[in-house]
Design a protein around this nucleic acid. Structure first.
Lengths: 207, 207
DNA sequence: AATAGTATTGACCACATTGGTCGACTGTGT
DNA sequence: ACACAGTCGACCAATGTGGTCAATACTATT
């Protein structure tokens, strides 16, 4: 990547980032097509290779960008002084949603990277990813108030159960709007619905 | 598909079915490669088109086969006289696991079909799929004993919460054994672990 | 052993798509 | 009028596509 790309107006830059993330997320690195990316981004083929040396450079740039964003916009926003586990999970979902509005495929893109073969990825990026994981665990579990939970339950297992439940809700929402553009959906009713579910979780898992 | 394929010994037939389901599940119909399928199945290119007229016929056969199996091996095995919702969910997971042992990609294959564009699929198959959905709802929710649940909760929401939790556990297991062959894993310890989680669900959602 | 018929292979085909290049063109500022 | 950064898409060799088919290997019957 070169400074030409950075000097683009944000709208065009984001169009390219989103097109590329979508393609890489759906197809993986090898099968992702630069032709599809430029078409989706609405730019000429030449421009992509004017901004980025080659396909690999583009991929690494997106990883860098995505990992930075996950660190800054999700983890650094989590307030570990709130000792309520479910509230903290709720905050994480909210932050993910914020990112989702601007970069609808970023979460999935980073997710697929986490499961992919990382042997050809530069150390710098792998290190950043490992830092993210470490910080993620910290932000999720540090300073949680165990006394909120029912005493007859294994709290570690309850953590898992709550996480799975929230993941399930997110998947449900994604499936529900499978074909629609997320930016055109009013999310407030679903935020309310989500909060209803969290209230149940608190009622059953907390004492 | 012709009778030549049906007359194959089961081992070879299953090798081809599994190879094809894996490829279609991972890549979708268009991007799935018949070359990759024959390579994975360990047969010559010619044989695939000796058994099946073309790629599309193969795909439709797999859908037929998979939908039939889901109906016979999962839904028809569910005992609706057991009125315990969590137990019934447990049975469904067990049946899925049985299929998984023999056809590791079938569940995902059918799952991707459910989300895909079905406009070019023959009516016969679409009908079978719709029957599966209808029967699925019936088998999952009919004759459930509502009185088992805590009275201060919205039971419909609790259904959802329990389903998401179980899905989450399944995803966790899949991620845990991401690269290993499922057939080589002793699943009994995980069945126990799963039952521990279900016990918690019963304790918190039932009265 | 000879024959017939079936099962199996992989080189081969025309075509589509790939990552990447480059000469032509546009627009802007001086 | 000139320079120059930005933009495009036709083009390239390479690879991969679904599908064919002549050549073989195998099996059973005579």
């Amino acid at each position: 990547m070169n400074d030409k790309f950075l000097k683009l107006d944000q709208e065009k830059r984001d169009r390219i980032i989103n097109a590329a993330m979508q393609e890489f997320a759906e197809q993986g690195y090898d099968k992702a097509s630069t032709n599809k990316i430029v078409k989706q981004a609405g730019i000429g083929k030449g421009m992509l290779f004017y901004y980025f040396e080659n396909k690999q450079t583009l991929y690494h740039y997106l990883l860098d960008y995505g990992l930075d964003m996950a660190l800054d916009k999700i983890l650094n926003e989590i307030d570990t002084s709130d000792r309520d586990f479910i509230e903290r999970m709720y905050k994480i979902v909210e932050q993910k949603l914020e990112i989702f509005k601007k970069y609808p495929d970023m979460i999935v893109f980073i997710g697929t990277f986490m499961l992919s073969d990382q042997s050809n990825i530069p150390d710098r990026i792998v290190n950043k990813y490992e830092e993210l994981q470490k910080k993620g665990l910290e932000k999720a579990y540090k300073n949680i108030d165990y006394s909120l939970f029912r005493e007859d339950l294994d709290v570690e297992k309850v953590f898992k159960l709550i996480e799975w439940t929230i993941d399930g809700y997110q998947n449900e929402i994604k499936a529900r709007f499978h074909n629609q553009k997320f930016s055109e959906i009013d999310l407030d009713p679903y935020r309310q619905e989500f909060y209803d579910y969290l209230a149940i979780l608190k009622r059953v898992y907390y004492q």
